[in-house]
């Protein structure tokens, strides 16, 4: 659409454009557009600056102090950061965040691709997609609360397993199984979320490509590898970034699966989000806003870095069809 306007050299001669405009290379529409650029983007930029950049800047500043939110702020410099990295609890939190991101992401996308493979050729696929999407509509907290009932030793899950002859089911709700349970719930909801998005891209791929491949003797997996994957690559890359960003946000699931009425979840199951929360809203003591914001800044830096690297790695020339 924009190409005919942004590409003056080809049209200049035909349209007899004047020397002056040809020299600046800007047409009237483009000039108008440039004039309108700031009035239209400024409000968004202001909102962005006030609601995002300023708080992040303020967090950065706070992270250099020791502060309880009420009294005076004591200058600490980078000491909050060095303390964070010496705290084995924070290192575990970082590791858990990465574990949820990488393992959860891998399983989610493998499942999504498998479902894409099946769903493309299946009847009633719209219905199947709705069913898959449904879990992501439900608030994560519902799973956390329902789990206590579903997975209790005499609960419905174990009753069902008994029908299949499993007499010694795992202790689902024990502290050891906390992260796997969180991971399971996460994969379940995320698969339902990303599969329809990837499927929407797959639906745009013309059928003749698949038909041609079939005639050439390609099986379902080869069709997936040589047609679906390259043609839907842009969407998959965006999904991967979305997943990375959202996996760092996981918070309420850990709190609900692992927390009790009196205590936070076991410290070995914390991710950086929970770590920040416990520092900022501790039980029975003043907040440690310096370390809380330092931890938040570290995880922001981490997710930014990973997103940039991921974008680089996933960059491909778009396939046109």
């Amino acid at each position: 659409m924009a190409t005919t306007i942004d590409n003056p050299p080809r049209t200049d001669a035909v349209r007899g454009r004047s020397e002056r405009t040809a020299r600046t290379g800007v047409g009237p529409l483009e000039r108008q557009r440039r004039r309108m650029f700031w009035p239209f983007t400024a409000p968004a930029l202001i909102v962005y600056a006030v609601l995002f950049i300023a708080p992040v800047g303020y967090a950065l500043w706070t992270s250099l102090y020791k502060w309880d939110g009420m009294g005076a702020m004591d200058w600490r410099g980078l000491q909050n950061y060095t303390l964070l990295f010496r705290d084995p609890r924070f290192r575990t939190s970082l590791f858990n965040t990465l574990e949820l991101m990488v393992i959860g992401g891998t399983i989610t996308f493998v499942l999504s691709f498998a479902l894409t493979l099946v769903l493309r050729e299946m009847r009633a696929k719209l219905f199947a997609r709705s069913v898959l999407f449904f879990p992501s509509l439900v608030n994560g907290m519902v799973f956390g609360i329902a789990a206590g009932f579903l997975f209790s030793p005499t609960g419905p899950v174990n009753q069902a397993l008994k029908l299949f002859g499993v007499t010694t089911p795992p202790k689902w709700l024990s502290t050891d199984n906390l992260l796997p349970m969180v991971l399971g719930t996460l994969v379940w909801t995320a698969t339902g979320y990303y599969t329809p998005i990837i499927m929407a891209a797959v639906d745009q791929i013309p059928d003749y490509l698949y038909e041609a491949a079939e005639l050439d003797g390609a099986g379902p997996f080869q069709r997936f590898r040589h047609i679906t994957l390259p043609c839907a690559w842009d969407v998959i890359a965006v999904c991967a970034v979305l997943w990375t960003v959202s996996s760092v946000k996981i918070f309420e699931l850990i709190l609900l699966y692992g927390g009790s009425t009196d205590a936070y979840p076991p410290v070995s199951s914390w991710n950086t989000a929970v770590y920040v929360y416990t520092e900022a809203f501790p039980q029975g003591t003043v907040p440690r806003l310096g370390t809380a914001t330092a931890a938040a800044i570290v995880s922001l830096a981490m997710v930014t870095l990973i997103t940039v690297v991921l974008r680089r790695l996933l960059r491909r020339d778009p396939v046109e069809y």
């Binding site: 609601l51 708080p55 946000k249 918070f251 929360y277 997710v303 930014t304």
Partner: peptide, 14 residues
């Protein structure tokens, strides 16, 4: 980006 910054910005917002 991420709940961490949501909580961070909540803290910071406050």
């Amino acid at each position: 980006m991420g709940r961490t910054t949501v909580s961070a910005s909540r803290v910071v917002g406050a």
